[in-house]
Design a protein around this nucleic acid. Structure first.
Length: 739
DNA sequence: AGCACGCCGACT
DNA sequence: GTCGGCGTGCTC
């Protein structure tokens, strides 16, 4: 006997697990994971739609109580089934359960949202209602009386309000509905993402010579029977968006739809606005702050054909368009395209797979392509399209690298080098603007001992604590809080203090050094509220401030023509992360930051402060030389077998019990040695993850590297089975990550 | 979500 | 005692 695991629709959180069903003989051939089936469900055996997530030969539930699958949905050409196929691919490629994959790919209805939108209208005769109310008054039907009184007064009621506040459940509503007094309307009130102030401007698309050529080159590729993904490699300001819009125009003319992926709405507001201006209400914008229900609404609109272009972050990739023609990936190199949750898919790879399945095309763009994308472009797997001219032929800013070690020798302990300080003075004198950029990620202003080097860390999470308001130390992972010690807990030295590297500290230093300058600060703290991000940028654009201090978020978005100086406070902050991408990230951030200077008609300059001035990421960024960087970085990846030179798989394990976790990871290691390829497999670990402990849960990783991804996938599949069979892994949370 | 079960208040 | 509304919990 064959049994199938089926999840019933995806509509309710309590139903988001699988139920086992018997597979009738005649359907054995047709049933495989991902197939849409009809099954009897619940007490009344109402027929419902379900998705097969797995097949097995054993019943894990009382076999006599199992029901039988009724039928298989045969229309394999629906949008939904194509997305399910994509989920199956993600499961295979990234390692996850089918349920997890389906849940990322299919729109999940949100119960609360769906209910909120239901409206109860009083549609009967007023007199009839009044008469009934009279009868109900003083009777035992309290709920009915309450409800009727309320609806007679208001004319219509919100469903949630009626059931929650008035206690009028289904039975009450049924009573009135049968009498013909009310109708329940499930209103489809779509929420247009608010706060963006988007307007259609009927703008004409005009491309310059180079942009036209780029578009032509891509169109020519599209003539091919099997068009390759195109990588649009263009420096900042070369007008990649113009090219995207031309491509989308063409796709729309063909009667197809397009998806535009962007790293984050807030950071690419300008781009979003231009799409809206161009395509008007054909466009919908998916905001990462939208609730699942709101996202569901937008997806529904797409499915019904009410919109043709979906602009949004990573998850917009799964927009259920019926005839998808193009997927655009803007700023392709951004790390936000990699999902943090299982399945840990990469939007670029998944977009290419979806496009392959649905005969759509992929175009991605970047000024600093990821090594993965550029290497594919070099070996001809992607079409490489270049845009060289910077907008109106502006020269690149003049960049100087300041060695901070030398500053210390000169006795300068400030966060500002003498050179940067002098340049700032000149900019202020010329009444121009400057941006100071702090490329810190995560660890803000940690406290360390100057004498012994001891760093204050969270006892639960193993990350550096950050200093807030001078005397409190806070853990950014779990919120643990303690008082800043007066002396070093490790060696007793009084020389313990903050590493002056937070945006607040820089702001203070600037205010002290340049009391007349107007300073704006933009970081996580000052952009909490919805449109504070826009407000700060707009204010800076209007020259209401002279200096803008901020984290990576200031290097994207707006053009500030009056900015002629960009200062990078400490390039090392992103260079010393324990992640093989850090050289690449640093190069990208510095290139972007430097590119912010001199966007107007005055020449720009940039100062990069660092303790490692000889590092190739910094050197290459200073002269804006991508190829030089690529060669160096690729050499490094080849040497150490990091992607894209090889493939890497991370086995991540987490458990409250440290001993248990250690044992489990050890068994995994032994198992891999036994079943894995004997040749050319590099295994690192088990080791504590970069954050070894979060909220008292221990975390460990094993990394595997191999030139051929097939071997890694094979190891993963064997490991998945091994873990499922052995009860010793029950209490351990295991996750896989490819690359 | 939708259905049955069962508690509990009101009426015969 | 009995009837039926309305809250609760389960669905392979």
């Amino acid at each position: 006997m064959i049994y199938a695991d089926v999840i019933i629709d995806i509509s309710h959180e309590k139903l988001d697990r699988d139920f086992q069903y018997r597979v009738p003989e005649e359907l054995v051939q047709a049933i495989k994971p991902g197939v849409v089936v009809t099954v009897p469900f619940g007490k009344g055996n109402t027929l419902r739609k379900g998705y097969v997530t797995g097949i097995s030969g054993t019943a894990k539930y009382d076999a006599s109580k199992l029901k039988e699958i009724r039928g298989v949905s045969t229309d394999s050409e629906t949008t939904e089934s194509r997305l399910i196929a994509l989920a199956a691919w993600m499961k295979e490629t990234y390692g996850s359960t089918m349920i997890q994959a389906l849940k990322t790919v299919l729109p999940v209805k949100d119960k609360v949202r769906a209910k909120e939108k239901r409206l109860i209208l009083f549609t009967g005769k007023k007199e009839e209602g009044q008469a009934l109310l009279g009868k109900l008054e003083g009777s035992r039907f309290k709920a009915r009386e309450r409800f009727l009184r309320a609806i007679l007064e208001a004319g219509s009621l919100d469903y949630t309000y009626a059931s929650k506040e008035l206690g009028a459940g289904i039975s009450v509503l049924d009573f009135f509905e049968k009498k013909g007094l009310i109708t329940i309307e499930s209103q489809e009130m779509y929420r247009i993402p608010e706060g963006l102030g988007l307007v259609k401007e009927n703008m004409e698309l005009s491309l310059n010579q180079e942009q036209l050529l780029a578009a032509e080159q891509i169109f020519r590729e599209w003539q091919e029977p099997d068009p390759r993904p195109a990588l649009l490699f263009g420096v900042t300001g070369s007008g990649k968006t113009q090219v995207y819009m031309r491509l989308i125009q063409k796709v729309l003319e063909e009667g197809k739809q397009a998806i535009v992926l962007i790293p984050e709405i807030a950071l690419t507001y300008q781009t979003v606005r231009r799409f809206y201006a161009m395509f008007g209400d054909k466009v919908s914008v998916l905001n990462s702050r939208l609730s699942q229900g709101e996202r569901y609404d937008q997806f529904k609109r797409a499915k019904r054909g009410e919109i043709q272009v979906m602009v949004g972050p990573r998850s917009a990739l799964f927009t259920p368009f019926s005839d998808l023609g193009l997927i655009v990936i803007d700023e392709e190199h951004e790390p936000t395209y990699k999902s943090e949750n299982t399945p840990r898919y990469h939007a670029r790879e998944t977009a290419i797979e979806r496009a392959r399945m649905e005969h759509a095309r992929v175009v991605m763009g970047s000024a600093t392509p990821s090594l993965e994308a550029y290497s594919h472009a070099c070996d001809g797997e992607y079409l490489l399209v270049k845009l060289n001219a910077r907008y109106e032929e502006r020269p690149l800013p003049q960049v100087s690298i300041v060695d901070l070690r030398e500053e210390l020798k000169k006795g300068n302990r400030s966060v500002l080098s003498l050179e940067l300080k002098r340049d700032l003075e000149q900019v202020l004198e010329r009444r121009e603007q400057a941006m100071l950029f702090l490329n810190r990620r995560g660890y803000a202003g940690f406290v360390s001992c100057r004498a012994c080097g001891h760093v204050m860390k969270c006892p639960h999470c193993d990350v550096s604590l950050s200093e807030h308001n001078g005397n409190r130390l806070i853990c950014h992972y779990c919120g643990y809080e303690t008082v800043k010690p007066e002396i070093c807990p490790s060696c007793g030295s009084p020389h313990i203090g903050g590493f002056k590297a937070g945006t607040q500290q820089i702001e203070k230093v600037i205010e002290k050094e340049f009391p007349k300058a107007r300073v704006l600060r933009m970081d996580f703290d000052t952009t909490r509220t919805k449109d504070s991000y826009e407000k700060i940028l707009a204010s800076f654009a209007k020259h209401e401030a002279d200096i803008l201090v901020g984290t990576q978020m200031i290097v994207k978005g707006h053009d500030f023509p009056n900015v002629t100086l960009v200062g990078v406070i400490a390039a090392d902050l992103s260079l010393n992360m324990d992640d093989y991408h850090c050289g690449e990230r640093t190069f990208q951030l510095l290139t972007q930051a430097v590119g912010r200077s001199g966007r107007g008609n005055r020449p720009g300059q940039a100062v990069i402060q660092t303790y490692q001035p000889e590092h190739y990421s910094i050197q290459a960024a200073a002269i804006q030389d991508y190829k030089k960087f690529y060669k160096e970085e690729m050499g490094y990846r080849m040497l150490l077998d990091y992607p894209p030179a090889a493939h890497m798989m991370t086995v991540f394990g987490a458990c409250q019990d440290e001993e248990l976790l250690k044992n489990a990871m050890y068994y995994i290691e032994v198992f891999i040695r036994r079943v894995g390829p004997k040749e050319e497999l590099h295994m690192i670990g088990p080791a504590a993850a970069s954050v070894g402990k979060v909220k008292d849960v221990y975390r460990q990783v094993i990394r595997l590297k191999h030139r051929d991804i097939c071997f890694l996938t094979a190891v993963r599949e064997k490991l998945e089975k091994y873990i499922e069979i052995n009860s010793g892994f029950r209490k351990i949370y295991i996750q896989f990550d490819m690359n």
